[in-house]
Write a protein that binds this DNA or RNA. Structure first.
Lengths: 225, 225
DNA sequence: ATCGGAACGGAATCACCGTTCCGATTCACC
DNA sequence: GGTGAATCGGAACGGTGATTCCGTTCCGAT
């Protein structure tokens, strides 16, 4: 299912002179390596490790990402962009009358869990205000999630009080690191996703609301400062 | 609600001569400090921090816990013991005919989430074989969970295929670190717990099993080596 | 009052990691 | 083939944190 846009670097293809081509190639290699290494060892992995995995020297990593945090931040943006794209994709599919039993939100979460790319989507702690690219990607994601929720609510699959922030929280909840190989871990995560979805449908059916959760802005805001 | 056994050190009371009394007192202070500090700053907190919080020198910390990992390990054992005690407690309560709507498992998870003590109950990564005290505490916990599940299954609250390992996984799922003050974070976690419980009940009612998950031994084993 | 040893606190040590710096390399262009 | 600029790779620097070491303090016994 890898869409053509699955590469980590999404800028326009290179009409670039030779030397800069290598630079850019390295850039994407670094990003990909960072994703792998951080996914495997947590954010505590060393820059040297990332560089080694990317097959470049540490110097080259630092030329493009002035700081470790900048690198992590780039990955975060990538993750949010990816999620936003997935949300939009699913929303488009569900715009057609045909509809899977899980609902659009369920489909989104399912694919997000099994999606090949790293688990990065979780800010570490206190960062600065909130950089522009992240803000943009976040807004896009929000829009996508709104569509998903609107669809499922219309289909009577969601209880009242369920918001976009809930989807984000579920994303967090649904993917704790498990000491199992990828496939098994995914299976376990999906097992729980199904449970949650069943819970949502039950609540919706019985018309029991969820009560208030944070708003999108509260949720996003809480992660940044 | 703090039971008399809430102190972090549970050994027999000291018939001990003066100097050793201080030693033991320091020991418990260190453990308590470690729990606070690690809970607040994550396992990345420094030993110096722990020592400072405990009001002792680093040397004293190292006399009792030869290594940072040993200290973390001690906390882990404490956490499992505590969970085991809670499980047994809840199982006892539910042995009486009166029963809360959430079921015994729900009650256990609820209290585990809101229980004041740290979130530590999550092995970091690859450790050695599995030390005796941990093994013992783990066995005790397992027994308690079995009782909880037996109770709820008899009450028709759980679908087939739901196991003790599932409870452990839920514990993991249910408590990701959230950037909110404790009370709010707990509220969000409980919100999610209610959803999961509703899902379980729905599955049970509709008689839809969960499919196979890992056994207790597989689960425990996966965390240790 | 003095002595021996257990326990203490914190300075010194050592390894690791983020970051900086610089000489070597490579490529585009002459 | 030669030259300069853009890149590289990786050694060196500085800081942080785990761990070790040791002089000091305190208690209980003589």
């Amino acid at each position: 299912m890898p869409s053509p846009a699955d590469r980590i670097d999404e800028r326009a293809d290179p009409p670039l002179p030779g030397r800069q081509r290598e630079a850019r190639a390295n850039d994407t290699a670094v990003l990909a390596a960072a994703r792998e290494v951080f996914a495997a060892q947590g954010h505590g992995a060393s820059m040297a490790d990332v560089a080694r995995h990317a097959g470049v020297g540490v110097g080259s990593v630092y030329r493009r990402y002035p700081t470790k945090e900048a690198l992590v931040e780039a990955l975060r943006v990538h993750g949010v962009r990816e999620a936003a794209r997935l949300a939009a994709e699913v929303a488009d599919e569900f715009a057609a009358p045909e509809q899977a039993a899980d609902g659009a939100v369920g489909a989104f979460l399912t694919r997000q869990i099994t999606g090949a790319t790293g688990p990065i989507l979780r800010p570490t702690g206190a960062t600065g205000p909130l950089p522009k690219d992240l803000a943009d990607a976040t807004a896009e994601l929000h829009a996508g999630l709104e569509r998903l929720i609107a669809h499922d609510r219309a289909a009577g699959l969601l209880p009242s009080g369920f918001t976009t922030a809930d989807v984000m929280q579920l994303l967090l909840h649904l993917r704790p690191t498990l000491p199992f190989p990828r496939a098994e871990a995914d299976a376990l995560h999906l097992r729980y996703l199904r449970l949650v979805l069943a819970g949502l449908r039950a609540r919706a059916r019985e018309d029991v609301g969820l009560g208030d959760g944070p708003s999108w802005d509260e949720w996003v805001g809480a992660w940044h400062d």
